[in-house]
């Protein structure tokens, strides 16, 4: 499902202009990371995707739906949104019930809900904890429950707000696997992150925001090599990219594998 953002400006009621004439198009099945420092407008932008915020000017279309004409609850069929803090959404007695809440709201038939819950449990590796109370889990696993509860809604578009905050290495790996699987299934994934290395390793397209505008937008390799523009918004290039830049490699690299291939070539030259 296509996402079309045309000339989007947004002003908060307190007068702060958080977005200035942002235009973007995101094709079905794209994996997009949105980066930039605090206050750059990242969260304000993605909150427009499911109608939590409505444009002050311009418009946002999800497929053929203009977000101004659909409620958040309706838009939830098309856009799943994982909030940053799982504790601000978990309320049921078991993990499985929590995951079923979203699909039930969307009115899916019982059998389909069953399947979706099973699938989400498996993707997040929560099977063994299905009957546990979410609040008896560690914050790391609570986050997985929150993610599973959105995965189970089976929306064509998924938005993650800072999914790696407070997660350890194992959990970040799990997240990367989930994102890869969503890609394989043809879902659109849009992730806000300040973990630039996570961004480099898992996203093909990167959008850099600053001062409510899009500063850079393009393939990860092109965007993440632009150290000077990134510095404007207080972002360092990813570690591997920096290593490549320091060694003067011919191309911008994002992952250890890419680095080694490029480095081997450079040594041979």
């Amino acid at each position: 499902m296509n996402i079309q953002i045309e000339n989007l400006s947004f002003r908060y009621p307190n007068g702060v202009l958080a977005l200035r004439r942002v235009s973007l198009e995101i094709a079905p099945g794209e994996q997009v990371a949105v980066i930039g420092q605090n206050g750059a407008g990242k969260t304000t932008l993605v909150k427009h995707l499911n109608g939590l915020l409505l444009p002050t000017e311009g418009r946002v279309r999800i497929g053929d739906w203009d977000t101004r004409h659909y409620s958040v609850a309706k838009l939830a069929r098309r856009v799943g949104y994982v909030f940053q803090n799982p504790d601000e959404q978990l309320f049921t007695k078991t993990v499985a019930e929590e995951i079923a809440f979203g699909p039930r709201n969307l009115g899916y038939p019982g059998e389909r809900i069953q399947e979706l819950v099973e699938d989400a449990l498996q993707l997040t590796q929560l099977q063994a904890m299905r009957n546990t109370n979410p609040y008896d889990l560690s914050p790391t696993w609570r986050k997985m429950v929150a993610i599973a509860s959105i995965l189970a809604m089976d929306t064509p578009i998924l938005v993650f707000d800072e999914p790696t905050t407070g997660q350890d290495a194992a959990s970040v790996t799990r997240l990367a696997m989930i994102i890869a699987e969503l890609k394989r299934r043809g879902k659109t994934v849009i992730t806000i992150t300040h973990d630039i290395d996570f961004c480099a390793e898992n996203f093909a397209r990167v959008i850099v925001m600053g001062g409510g505008q899009v500063l850079l937008d393009g393939p990860a390799r092109t965007v993440l090599g632009k150290a000077e523009i990134l510095a404007q918004t207080y972002v360092d290039p990813p570690q591997i990219t920096r290593l490549g830049l320091r060694l003067g490699l011919a191309e911008v690299v994002c992952t250890p594998q890419e680095f080694l291939d490029a480095f081997e070539k450079q040594c041979a030259a």
């Binding site: 958040v72 609850a73 939830a76 949104y81 601000e88 979203g102 959105i150 809604m153």
Partner: peptide, 13 residues
């Protein structure tokens, strides 16, 4: 925030 999160899960408020 909680209201926003639950509406995003399709809760009709």
């Amino acid at each position: 925030t909680i209201i926003a999160a639950q509406r995003s899960r399709g809760l009709d408020t």
